[in-house]
Simulated assay, not measured.
Amino acid sequence: MPLSLANMRRQYTRDGLDEAQAPENPLTLFSLWMQQARETESPPVEANSMALATVDEQGRPHCRILLLKGFGEEGFSFFGNYDSGKGQDLATHPWAAMTFFWPGLERQVRVEGQVHKLDPTLSDAYFHSRSVASRLGAWASPQSRALDNRAALEALLAQVGQRFAGQPVPRPEHWGGYCLRPERLEFWQGRADRLHDRLDYRLHDGLWQRSRLAP
């Protein structure tokens, strides 16, 4: 019998989201929700995991899971290979969308905005906070490019290991950070019978405007 997905559903009854109690600045609410997610979610869910969507030069969307590494008034930061698929997309169309989903809290947050590369000093600082193995991997992997097999990747890693044996591993120029400066954040709280709460924040002339959206 084929697997039926149509009847897979759950009731969301944990919490609600009232605009009368929501802060004027969406980053305040995001910070609160992220902290609660860190306290509530457990492996294999990582509270800072997100789906990052980009668009290529042909207008085709691409989405993948990444880890958020920082956020604040300046934006939301993440790191990766500038020559990868997402790096090429962002070089052509420097706009992206992020989605965070915390099933334990029955919550979702969408973030949209323009993306720019982080200052090299910030990329250096984060790169050197990573393990040596991860730093070597950043040098070895030609991310998003075709490989003949797993052995080819392991051979590249071995070459890099020999190259930097006994010395510090610097950050490669093709690897670094990005910052998404948000122009829109939407907070979604699951509610019973699919009548979910949605608060939408949009930036207009430097000020955040909030509205409730129908579920």
Rank of each mutant, 00 (worst) to 15 (best):
W188I: 00
T40L: 01
V45F: 13
E46D: 13
Y12E: 11
Y201H: 10
L5F: 14
V111R: 04
R150L: 12
A6I: 05
R202Q: 14
Q162G: 01
P168D: 03
D197C: 08
G87N: 07
L185V: 03
G190S: 08
E24Y: 00
R107F: 07
G85A: 11
Q143M: 12
A22C: 09
L32W: 14
A133P: 14
A133Y: 09
Y178P: 01
L157D: 11
V45R: 12
L67Y: 11
G177R: 01
E154C: 02
S211C: 10
W33D: 04
A125W: 10
T92R: 15
N149L: 02
K117M: 02
P94S: 08
E112A: 14
E24F: 03
M34P: 02
G177N: 04
V55I: 15
A96E: 00
W33L: 10
H196Q: 08
A51D: 02
F71I: 00
P94A: 07
S84G: 13
H116F: 02
L27G: 05
M1P: 04
E41Y: 05
A53Y: 07
A22Y: 07
A214C: 03
R64W: 02
E39N: 09
S77W: 01
D56Y: 06
V55A: 09
G85P: 01
H128D: 05
L199D: 06
P23A: 10
R194E: 09
E112P: 13
A165K: 14
H116T: 06
Q21I: 00
D205N: 14
F79G: 01
Y178Q: 02
C179S: 01
H204Y: 06
W33K: 11
G85M: 04
R145G: 13
A152M: 10
G176Y: 02
A138Q: 06
Q21R: 12
P142Q: 15
G16F: 13
T54C: 10
L105A: 02
A96F: 03
A6F: 07
Q162S: 14
A214H: 04
L157T: 15
R10K: 15
L3H: 12
S77H: 01
A192K: 15
E154H: 06
N81Q: 08
R212E: 08
H116D: 05
A47D: 01
H62Y: 13
P23L: 10
M34D: 07
P170F: 10
W95R: 09
E186Y: 14
L213Y: 05
F187Q: 04
Y201R: 10
V160D: 11
N81A: 12
A53V: 13
T13V: 12
L199M: 09
Q21T: 08
Y12W: 12
F187W: 05
A96W: 04
G75K: 00
T40K: 00
W33F: 12
G190W: 05
E24I: 00
